[in-house]
Structure formats: structure tokens, C-alpha cells
Write a protein that binds this DNA or RNA. Structure first.
Lengths: 277, 277
DNA sequence: TTTTGTTATTAATAAATTGATAATAAGTGG
DNA sequence: CCACTTATTATCAATTTATTAATAACAAAA
């Protein structure tokens, strides 16, 4: 029988927080970048890949498996602050582009107990995180095969290990535009991490067209060729040079620096031109 | 001191879920629709508005204030299932378009205790939910004033009550494209609901261009004029007729029904043409 | 019955954008 | 100095978008 309160204060003083069964909250971080193949004839060989940062679990559950970096949200910590803290702890990096991707909350997603996880997508220029990663942390290159209309196979590779999984895109009822994903096969990635990876790749693909987030993956100075390759690997298709240049013309700023040494005509270096207003 | 386990099962059997402090999880539902002004000369008067469904709180905290419908996530319920259940409970509606919007998790967003809330956006044809709502539930028309470059004022009105609040868009550090919102003023809306509303309006505005979600707000048969008005109210600007018709040409199917009685040339009725493949 | 007002719908053309090909530039490595 | 490679821009065709305006068809007023 609910008691009758007259003021907000009175109610709060009396409030029993244990009325509802509680649960735990985590954040997972999908750190994405683009592989760098500086020395290759990259225009010809299409070697550029998306890459994702994984860490090897040294605890149960999924001990020994690779997973996305993550951690529990502290009780006195804003949700949006958690991924930034975790990133600092795991990679010692600050000032990283982060955006919330999706909150995954299936009942059985974690074998330990009920844990809901907010996935955040982080974008970074790979050069900022290359040396300092230990044995437990590794970049994996992503290859994506569209198996059929509704099945996607993903292969992750870090040079010595390979991880494969398949995901089925399900056209949800009651929606007219959005897929939800379901894991069909998964050797080795922990938890529902495959879903996070595919969601992130899709989000990036969508947002590259109407935002400037790509520039978070570029170093300060870059050539238009490099930028174009990043676009191409994210979109999964070749772009024509003049068309591409037209698209990004007002997003970049020409510098007077040049990049030489490529065995061909040197290319001009550009920087990101921040929006006015 | 962590004990050493040899198998996953062994670990789980021994796992103590109380290691981390737990919290509660809610879902909020941002039910959006478009006001219907059937009898007006709507092309001239721009009366069409976005509307949002609010319920009056009859409990503390925020007793007597309007807020988004919502509820706690059950411990044995998938996160994505919760908004569907809540919607069924509060409005008796099923088969509603729903998509996860954002998970809000600031420490102080609920005065009771630590509660993280996933907001879901629901889109509906208003005619499906008009009669059957009681006194505690009401549609509010939304008017949006761009006060300055970074401040937006919102006014909600249900005919007898008016709710106002202001939100500041903050260009986040470390990002190049996204705003985060901060409530500047808020008379009467409960919790961080103003943020949810503005996020949803922005999401809708973005997605209308590359998805077919608008059709979730239309009834089965509609005129192109009606559809255009919905586009215009979502985008907040007028569109030219021929341009609009080109854009949606391959999304709609012409029927042989007509709508008469408008005091002008009757308009043909169309339906949503579902994507092939 | 005719006129006026209103929205629907489409034609037609100008303007802008995009697509595709090709030409020229400027390094490196033989 | 030549071959090779990528960079960069020009050019023109094809397509799309913007804009104006013409015509259609009903309701209501005159």
C-alpha cells in the first residue's frame, strides 16, 4: 500500500531503492581505425582495411578469447564518462573521438549475470596507438564478405591469429528501414561483440556522408589520396578521383607542405578545415 | 585474491555477482507523430506540428509533472523488449515502429537513485492513438525556436497546458560533428526528458533523408500533399512540389482512390511501396 | 450558372551537380 | 633520360535538381 506524500523531499527521504531488482552496466569500446600500408602500391592492391582493437581476456568468462576493451560503469560515474576512463586505463590515450553506438541488453548476453552494455565507437588515427600496445592488446584487420543478401561474414586478422564470425541481418517487423543483427556463427569473439563491430561499421558508413567524423582517423596532415583511401575502405567501394575531390573540397585546407618519396609526383598535404560559425 | 579456475563452468559456479555495485535501468519512450489539421487551409497557415505523447506523473518524484512514458526494465527481459511492453501497457498499442535513440546515464538524472535510461523513439500515425487516451496521457504539439546559434527553445502545448524549456547545443570536444545537449531552463518536464525530445527530433530529421521511417507516421492511404507536409514539418522547411515528388516517386505506389471534399481539385491517394529484394 | 479560390499535378526549361575520360605534372628508380 | 607511378586538373556528357508556370478539378461564393 503506497503511503501518501505531500512533498518531493518527504518522498525521497522514505524511498527504498531496493524495490526493483538491479543489474550491472558496462561499456564496450569499439576502437576503429584504418590499417596503414605506407610502403605498398596501395592504389593497385587494395590492401587498406578497417581495423579494430581487441584485448585478450585473462579472466573467465571467455578466458583466452579476444574481446572489445570495456569495463563496468561505476556507481558514481556518468555513463558517457565511463568509456573515456576505460580508454585511458587500457591504452593511456586521451582526447579520442567517442560516440555512443548502441546499448545491448539481451538477458543472456553475459553468462555471469544480467549485464547491460553500452557500446561506444571510438575513432583514431592508428599512428597514435601503435607502439605502446602490449601482448594482450592487438589491432585486427577486418575483411567483410557479403555472403548473401542477408548474411555477412567477418574475418579479423592480426597477423598471427584469425577470428571468424557470421551475422544475419534481420529485417525487423514493425520497422521499414532498419536491420537488427543476429550472430549465426562465432568461433572466438567474446560476448555479443560481433554485433557491436558490425553496428559500428554500418554507423560509420552512414555517417561519413553527412558528418566530418572521418577526420578523427586522419593525422594532422594528409594527402587527398590517403583520405580517399579511407573513404573507400569505409564505404567498401572505389571512388572516382575528381568526384571525390569535389566532395571534400570545402572540408580540407590546402597547406604548402608536400609529401615526397613515393616514387611518383609528390602530393600536397592538407588539413581538416573546421566548420565556420 | 583471485582464485584460479580451470574451466568456464567452475568460474561461473563460484561467481559472486555482488562484486560491483548495481543500478537500475529504465526505458523512456519518445512517441512522435504529426498533428492533424484536416479542416485548415494548411498549405497557407503552416499549422502542422510535430507532437509528442506525455503522461502526467501521479507519483513522486516530479509528481504532477508531465513526462515521457516509461518503465523499469525487468531483470528477465531483453532491453529491446521493454519499450514494446511498456507501450502495450500504457497505450494498449502493438506493432509500433521503435528504435533505440540514446542511453542517458548521468549520475544525477534521477533523484531517487542511480537509474540509467535507454530512450526509444516510437513513430506512429496519430489516428491510431487519439480517442483512447485518458486524462493522464496527452499529445503535445511541439514548437521549436532557434533562439541563437546554440540555444533552442521548445514549447509543448496540448491545448490547455504549455511546457517550455531551453536547451544549449554544445559542440563537444574531441568530436568534429556532434552536439551534446544541455538543459538550460526547464519549468516542468520531468527528469532529462527535454534531452530525449530534442535528440529524437534531430534523429528523425537526419534519418528521413536516407530511410523510409516517415511512412510509419502515415496512414495506409495518403495524398502526396499530406506526405509533403510531414516532410516539411520534420525538416522545418518548405519543399518545392516537383522536387519533392521526384524524391519520393519510387517510394510510393499510386492507387486508383481519390480524396475529395477539400474545396479544390481532389488528390490521388498513394500507399507506401515496400522495397523489393 | 459563372466566377473565384484553392490545391493537385505535370510540363518545360535553366542551373547545378555528378560521372567518366583523358591530359598534364612531377617525383623515383632504373 | 626514360619508364613508371600517382597527383591533379580540365573537359565534356549525363543526370539530377531548382524554378517557373501551365493546366486540372473540385467547393463555395456571387
Amino acid at each position: 500500500m503506497p503511503k501518501n506524500y505531500n512533498t518531493e523531499e518527504e518522498f525521497l527521504k522514505d524511498y527504498d531503492p531496493s524495490t526493483f531488482e538491479k543489474l550491472s552496466m558496462m561499456v564496450d569500446i569499439l576502437m576503429l581505425s584504418v590499417s596503414n600500408e605506407e610502403t605498398e602500391n596501395y592504389r593497385k592492391t587494395d590492401k587498406k582495411k578497417m581495423s579494430v582493437l581487441l584485448v585478450k581476456r585473462d579472466n573467465y568468462p571467455f578466458k583466452g578469447r579476444w574481446c572489445l576493451p570495456g569495463g563496468f560503469v561505476r556507481i558514481d560515474e556518468n555513463l558517457d564518462d565511463a568509456p573515456r576512463r576505460v580508454l585511458k586505463e587500457e591504452t593511456n590515450l586521451e582526447n579520442i573521438y567517442l560516440e555512443q553506438l548502441y546499448t545491448f541488453g539481451d538477458v543472456d548476453r553475459d553468462p555471469r549475470m544480467r549485464i547491460i552494455s553500452s557500446a561506444y565507437m571510438a575513432l583514431i588515427d592508428k599512428n597514435r596507438l601503435c607502439e605502446k600496445i602490449g601482448e594482450k592488446t592487438s589491432w585486427f584487420d577486418i575483411t567483410l564478405y557479403e555472403e548473401s543478401d542477408d548474411i555477412v561474414d567477418l574475418v579479423l586478422d592480426n597477423g598471427s591469429e584469425t577470428i571468424k564470425f557470421s551475422i544475419r541481418k534481420i529485417l525487423r517487423e514493425q520497422t521499414t528501414d532498419r536491420y537488427s543483427f543476429k550472430i549465426v556463427e562465432n568461433d572466438s569473439l567474446a560476448f555479443d561483440n560481433p554485433l557491436v563491430i558490425l553496428s559500428g561499421l554500418e554507423r560509420l558508413k552512414n555517417k561519413i556522408g553527412y558528418t566530418d567524423i572521418v577526420f578523427n582517423m586522419m593525422s594532422e596532415y594528409f594527402t587527398l589520396g590517403e583520405l580517399q583511401q579511407v573513404y573507400e575502405v569505409i564505404l567498401g567501394k572505389k571512388l572516382l578521383d575528381p568526384a571525390f575531390r569535389r566532395i571534400i573540397a570545402d572540408k580540407v585546407l590546402k597547406t604548402d607542405k608536400m609529401k615526397t618519396g613515393g616514387g611518383h609526383r609528390p602530393s600536397r598535404l592538407f588539413t581538416y578545415k573546421k566548420k565556420e560559425k
